[in-house]
Write a protein that binds this DNA or RNA. Sequence first.
DNA 1: AAAGCGGGGAT
DNA 2: ATCCCAGCTTT
Length: 354
Amino acid sequence: MKNSTTFSIPVLFDVHSFQHDLITWYSKIKRDLPWRVNQDPYRIWVSEIMLQQTQVDTVIPYFNHFMERYPTVYDLAEADEQDVLKSWEGLGYYSRARNLHTAVKEVVENYGGQVPSDKQELKNLKGIGPYTLGAILSIAFDQPEPAIDGNVMRVMSRVFHIEEDIAKPKTKKLFDDVVREVISHEDPSSFNQGLMELGALICTPQKPKCDQCPVQEHCLAYSYGNQTDLPIKSKKKKQKQTDYFGLILQNEKGELYIQKRPEDGLLANLWEFPLVPKSVPSVEEWFETEYGAQIMTHSKGEKVRHVFSHVIWDIEIIFATTESNVESGIFVPLEKLKEYPFPNVQYKIMKNLV
DNA sequence: AAAGCGGGGAT
DNA sequence: ATCCCAGCTTT
């Protein structure tokens, strides 16, 4: 096994001073966040999953509610997936919740309910990738492992003037090498969290507050004056757009038809009002072909736009009634809708209900 | 290596 | 509008 490194820190870089300046700053200004009250690995774990691609202020209420409902791994392991998804409702990236649930059940079954502190065991748990692995090992178990996220890549690209494209998977290895060379072995938790806090509060994507930066004297990009040109990141392509009818279908009792989405793919295992591609010639005929039931459409509602990171849905509400049962889903009264987990796009559709 | 996977906040 | 956010899994 070859042990090649892709990066060496500059000879004149004072590692110890950098660590000290960063950690001292972090210990002084760190925010009082609910997952920072102790080192419970389960709490750290849940917080790190929720924080993936999600901002701190968004996560806080979800985290508090989640820990109240599932205080320990045993509580979460025993829960129904639909209840876990309900707790995640509106947070997005729902596979995070399903993978966390799977992994916690595994911890209860295979590790006696103790979150493993072993790198390999932890890495094998569903939903724990390179970042979350490092975050849990360093924050919960004080191990000097890198936790490379978007903040850390931005900060490090500026401090060391790295011009590699951070959108490329290959570049992750470079930043892993960088952090391994400079991470504090005395306090890896504060070091990693300090880097992220720095990226969130000072070393921001636009208009970084370099005049307030605790590591300004260590920053190569600042000395060159081109910190706002870093990091280099290639653009992603824009979303594909699709037109749908959002079908609000009632039976003779006035109950509403909803169905559970497939267990794979977008919004997996969440519930929905049927979405009918607008390309079909007739909604009634399409529904009879797909669902084997006759419906009667009678009016249209407002138009809804929902933007995902990779697709855009434009949905025009259409109201319909049926005298048949529809086997692929269920009819529920209005007041029971809230018992099911729906994605936000479906809440936009529900605004058309009286 | 690239694509799929949500939703919200900042500018 | 565009970018970004305490990324991971699948292909």
